[in-house]
Amino acid sequence: MIPYGKQEISQEDIDLVNEVLRSDFLTQGPMVAKFESAVAEKCDVKYAVAVNSATAALHLACLALGVKTGDYVWTTPITFVATANCAIYCGAEVDFVDIDPKTYNLSTEQLRIKLEKAEIEGKLPKVLIPVHLAGQSCDMKKIHELSLKYGFKIIEDASHAIGGKYFDEKIGNCKYSDITVFSFHPVKIITTGEGGMVLTNRKDLYEKVYRLRSHGITRAAHEMTHSPDGPWYYQQLELGYNYRITDIQAALGVSQLARLDEFVSKRHEIANNYNEMLKDKDIIIPYQSPENYSAYHLYIIRLDLKKNRFTHREIFERFRSDGILVNLHYIPVYRQPFYEKMGFQPKDFPEAEKYYSEAISIPIYPSLTLEEQKKIVYRLVTPIGHQTIF
């Protein structure tokens, strides 16, 4: 069986986790701070706060930027539901911007058009959440320019993109955003089992996220309403959450981070192999914009269904029946029943609809072998019955 993605655990990972298990701290100890510092340094950003999931990171990012009832938050429809849900948690309304037909990221042209209309209607977004789908950065320079004109804040959902670059600068440096969010789920570039991180260059946002991660509590005297009663003293300044990550998870993250560049390089090697094997087939391979160095979390192909008689579903199921666990990233969020009730119409997002009808994520992860890649491509291009697929 070949999954679409999986973690790679080394003996070094196991040894560092075991070291923490034998230490005095299993949670809220020094390894979390070490992981945060290591990621911040790797990404050329000032502050990082580790949390128990990227969903938590997105929620805290919205709270830190003051998202509340009556606000609007926009994002792409081609993402996991958590990217939109984080705004709903805060009481805001969500809307979607259609995707670019080449990169599958949020379209800056459609964003510009939608912002012009929203300004007239008095419904500009407070926050935009662009998603770096598959590990390739959105056009952040253009998005940042639009944010300066229209006054919205930016949260980069870089759940797929740690280790990637944009104009040769690290994704996560927050040069064109207020906050960046990473995921460390097992299928992502590096893993902590479950986990996420909030990155920012703004001290005020860092302090807010840091408090909210742990019930809104502070032990910092300069944040308190009066001098501490003693060394035991803490104050809850606002309503926060238990979104903490453990030292056990952070240890795995520290060890994995040491191999980040190696992981991404291997993913590029695998992507290049696919590109070569599929270049003469009636299949759209992932477009990489010249300003990007993708982390290649996913390798998404699109099927030219006009040139064969098999459906998207038939081809997908053929992979699955052969033990190749392809996936589809993602079902457009507005198609989910929870969001359908809000009145979203598929016809308003033609590029996302076309993408959904054609896309398949085929396996990519560092330990995927060339022989396994050849098997995947063979299953894709060989005949079904008496009919050649491509």
Rank of each mutant, 00 (worst) to 15 (best):
E269Y: 15
P332W: 05
K375S: 01
Y241V: 00
K306L: 10
R320S: 01
R267G: 01
V49L: 09
H226F: 13
N242W: 12
L303K: 12
K375W: 10
F319V: 02
V198S: 06
R318I: 05
G196H: 04
D100T: 14
E169K: 15
A50M: 06
L212Y: 07
D348R: 05
G253R: 07
V381W: 05
V49F: 09
L205E: 00
L148G: 11
Q249C: 13
I113K: 15
L124C: 05
V181I: 05
A84S: 11
L370C: 09
I301P: 13
K123H: 14
F25R: 08
P228G: 09
A251I: 04
V264T: 08
P3S: 04
E41T: 05
R302M: 15
G240P: 03
M140K: 04
P186T: 03
F182Q: 02
E358C: 10
V81A: 03
I190Q: 05
Y4L: 00
T388E: 13
K170E: 15
C86L: 00
N272C: 13
G343Q: 09
G135F: 00
I389S: 02
M140R: 03
I2T: 02
Q288V: 13
R302Q: 14
H268A: 10
C43D: 09
I99L: 13
V131R: 01
G343V: 08
G385Y: 07
A251G: 03
K102V: 14
E358N: 10
Q373K: 02
G29E: 01
D24F: 15
P130F: 07
A158N: 05
L65C: 01
I283S: 01
D204C: 07
K114W: 10
G230F: 08
E340A: 14
I14N: 04
Q345N: 15
K175T: 12
L368F: 13
G323T: 04
H329R: 12
I389L: 04
D348N: 12
R22Q: 03
P77V: 05
I283M: 03
L146A: 10
T180P: 03
T388C: 03
Y287R: 10
I283P: 01
N275G: 11
G164W: 03
L328I: 11
T369Q: 08
N18M: 12
C174S: 12
Y234E: 11
K203R: 06
I143A: 10
D280T: 15
F152G: 12
L128V: 01
T103H: 06
V20G: 02
T200K: 11
L237E: 06
W74F: 12
V198K: 10
Y241Q: 08
I171H: 02
Y299T: 14
I113E: 15
F96S: 03
V131Y: 01
A359V: 11
A92E: 06
L26S: 12
A40N: 11
V198M: 08
C43V: 02
V254H: 00
E207K: 11
E19S: 09
Y365S: 00
L252I: 12
I189K: 08
T27K: 12
R112W: 15
P125N: 13
S214P: 04
L16M: 08
P332S: 01
I331A: 09
S361C: 04
D15H: 14
L370D: 13
D229L: 14
K102S: 08
T311M: 09
V181K: 02
R219M: 14
D44P: 06
T225L: 11
D98L: 12
F25E: 06
Y287D: 15
K165W: 14
